[in-house]
């Protein structure tokens, strides 16, 4: 085996994310480092409250937040709220991502369509999301539909913009390869443009998903009987800061997990990438 073969093999293993001992140890180490600072802060606050430096009424100590979480879990409320929120995000994300990908793709491929529609989309993009709420409530009522719509709108724009921008910046040299092989416009889209933008698409979906989690809070603040956003409102109205902080922490965890799932799902599509650093 020559040196270059060895290097290739190593590159291949690195790309496929081998499950070897060093990788697992590295992951644990990364987790420990990432958790160290928040854990230290939480511990400090806990000690401060126990020592009587603060009464912890408005900023509850970690132990009380944990107790609240356990309570919510025991009654089954926590699962119900999480399911409600995740369902809204999933539906809104699905609609927004599909629409953003299709319209962004067509806009990128057809200059005519872009000139026709892009100014309108860019205009709507600068409208604050909350501004849609009254209209959506009039159109779709006060239950699930307006919430899902609002999330879909939030997800749509980053995905649309990401796909459009990525298609416009596809390397001319690769497009010429398609021309030499006489691809039609549809084939060009399917065989050159779409694969070329996969990495940017994955990033666009991630930022879309992030916005989805932001917008679900806005949607649930506008009136809901379940969901993590409802826990926030409920905590404010009944003066339960521990419940608010608990809901915020669950949001953070869910967002991070959803993002990690998306990254994991898109990884096999991006194995070909020749990048200086492994994907995040």
């Amino acid at each position: 085996m020559t040196a270059s073969d060895l290097a290739l093999q190593q590159a291949g293993e690195a790309a496929s994310g081998s499950e070897g001992q060093p990788a697992a140890a590295g992951w644990l180490k990364g987790l420990a480092v990432g958790v160290a600072l928040p854990a230290l802060l939480a511990l400090g606050w806990e000690v401060a409250v126990r020592a009587g430096v603060s009464n912890g009424r408005l900023v509850p100590p970690p132990s009380r937040i944990l107790a609240t979480l356990v309570d919510l879990w025991r009654t089954g409320d926590l699962v119900m709220h999480i399911v409600a929120t995740l369902r809204r995000v999933a539906l809104g994300f699905a609609f927004g991502a599909v629409a953003g990908t299709i319209l962004g793709g067509i806009s990128g491929a057809s200059a005519m369509f872009r000139r026709l529609t892009d100014p309108m989309f860019q205009g709507f993009r600068s409208v604050p999301s909350i501004a849609w709420v009254p209209l959506f409530v009039l159109w779709f009522g006060i239950f699930e539909a307006p919430k899902v719509m609002l999330i879909a709108v939030g997800v749509f724009f980053p995905v649309y913009l990401g796909v459009l921008g990525a298609i416009q910046s596809v390397d001319r040299k690769l497009v010429e390869v398609g021309q030499v092989f006489r691809l039609s416009q549809a084939q060009m889209l399917r065989r050159i443009l779409l694969p070329a933008i996969l990495p940017s698409w994955a990033v666009a979906l991630r930022s879309g998903l992030g916005l989805g989690f932001m917008f679900v809070v806005a949607a649930e603040l506008m009136g809901a009987s379940e969901g993590l956003g409802y826990l926030l409102v409920d905590g404010q109205q009944l003066g339960k800061p521990d419940q608010i902080v608990a809901a915020i922490i669950v949001f953070a965890l869910l967002g991070k997990i959803a993002d990690a799932v998306l990254v994991r799902l898109s990884a096999p599509l991006l194995a070909w990438q020749d990048t200086a650093r492994p994907a995040l």
Partner: peptide, 20 residues
């Protein structure tokens, strides 16, 4: 008048499609 099955072209760079 346009790219043609009878004519093949090799570029200065390989221009392989990186995702294939």
């Amino acid at each position: 008048t346009e790219p043609n099955a009878a004519v093949g072209l090799i570029f200065q760079e390989p221009r392989l499609l990186p995702w294939l």
